[in-house]
Design a protein around this nucleic acid. Structure first.
Lengths: 214, 214
DNA sequence: TAGGATTTGTGCGTATGTATT
DNA sequence: TAATACATACGCACAAATCCT
């Protein structure tokens, strides 16, 4: 693909992925090629390429004569993905941690401000979005691209589970826990210790998984 | 996708992936949509979907007006992929090892026979193909699908490097080492110890990487 | 059971970009 | 520099599959 087509592809891909993960398009939703093509002002062809990628990643399933449906997350799949994400999170501090810069710490500070604000006014969607952005921030601490790609793939594969489960959980407590994770991470990064930051992340993924199953 | 289209997709995808990894289509080769469509008896449309997936996986790069070219493996990328593969290999014995069955051991025995035969009559292509099949066998020992998919993706991403490097290496020694790995693995699986098998695999990936850089 | 409405899959002509002469 | 050849990207029309009446 060349720059122009690639740029549009990325736009549409990230847009649809976000809709799926933020439950704007919950499992079972039909993503109509024609409707989306009209919405984005293209023909079906470029859009089909985006849907094909989402299908390769397990986020949608296209059925001839039926439609392209957002998939549900199988409980066993969720277990497996989380188990692997846990390990990859730990590896982020080991394989090729990047040096912590002032910009890194500055980015984290703004995450902390936003998280504290969120804790004062909790909202499921606000949490989900902030968490997604913070996930991207976490990836930026690792220099190993293969690890980043694999982690990202796994994250988006099951990210929507959290928003699906939050009604059965304690939203305020989740926000508080998130703020605590950020504070702990600040301490780690202040010391330039990416490995510690990775272990903190790993611990919180583990605990988050446990709460999800409660 | 539905069964029929999906089956053809898998056929074409695996065929092209194998051509790339066995250097039937070495880096820089142009994979012409029209030529391949004619060869496989389809139109360009289904074929383009296959090429799109190969592009997503980093095996080819499509450039508007130029063609779809088999990518080269960047040395830094190789390092990163190998580093991650090493860790994932170890995880295979930890996350969800499957019970070792008689069939498992029987499969391994036939790999041993083929490897010993290969050691008597070494051939780069024969080694590469056997290694590819044995890789798939290794995946079958793990129940975690996410781990299997991630490992497979990484393996094929850089698999062609070995055939590109073998002229500068000692083919006979590589075959001998491979036979030894299989023998060690037989001992581990005889005891039903998948974790030991995974560690053996990990060790040999590590050593293989070291020889590759020599 | 049959038929029509709707959806994704396929094939092909055209637009657009690139390299070469 | 311009023109030509040829590649992928795109859009549309039609085929095939599914669902509902």
């Amino acid at each position: 693909m060349t720059t122009e087509a690639a740029a549009r592809f990325q736009r549409l891909y990230q847009e649809l992925r976000e809709r799926i993960c933020l439950l704007d398009a919950p499992p079972g939703t039909r993503l109509s090629e024609e409707a989306l093509a009209a919405e984005f002002g293209t023909s079906r062809t470029p859009l089909r390429r985006v849907l094909a990628r989402l299908e390769d990643e397990g986020l949608v399933e296209s059925r001839h004569g039926v439609g392209t449906l957002v998939t549900d997350v199988d409980p066993e799949e969720l277990r497996e993905v989380y188990a692997l994400r846990l390990e990859l999170a730990g590896l982020a501090g080991v394989l090729s941690p990047l040096p912590v810069t002032d910009e890194t710490r500055s980015d984290l500070e703004s995450f902390i401000l936003r998280a504290e604000d969120l804790a004062r006014h909790p909202s499921p969607r606000g949490f989900a979005r902030l968490n997604m952005e913070y996930f991207a921030f976490g990836l930026s601490l690792t220099g190993n691209r293969a690890l980043r790609e694999a982690s990202e793939r796994l994250y988006f594969r099951t990210a929507r589970i959290w928003l699906q489960s939050i009604p059965r959980m304690d939203l305020a407590a989740e926000c508080e826990t998130f703020v605590e994770e950020l504070h702990q991470t600040r301490t780690a990064l202040a010391a330039g210790d990416v490995q510690a930051a990775a272990l903190i992340r790993r611990a919180h993924i583990s605990m988050s998984m446990a709460r999800l199953y409660a």
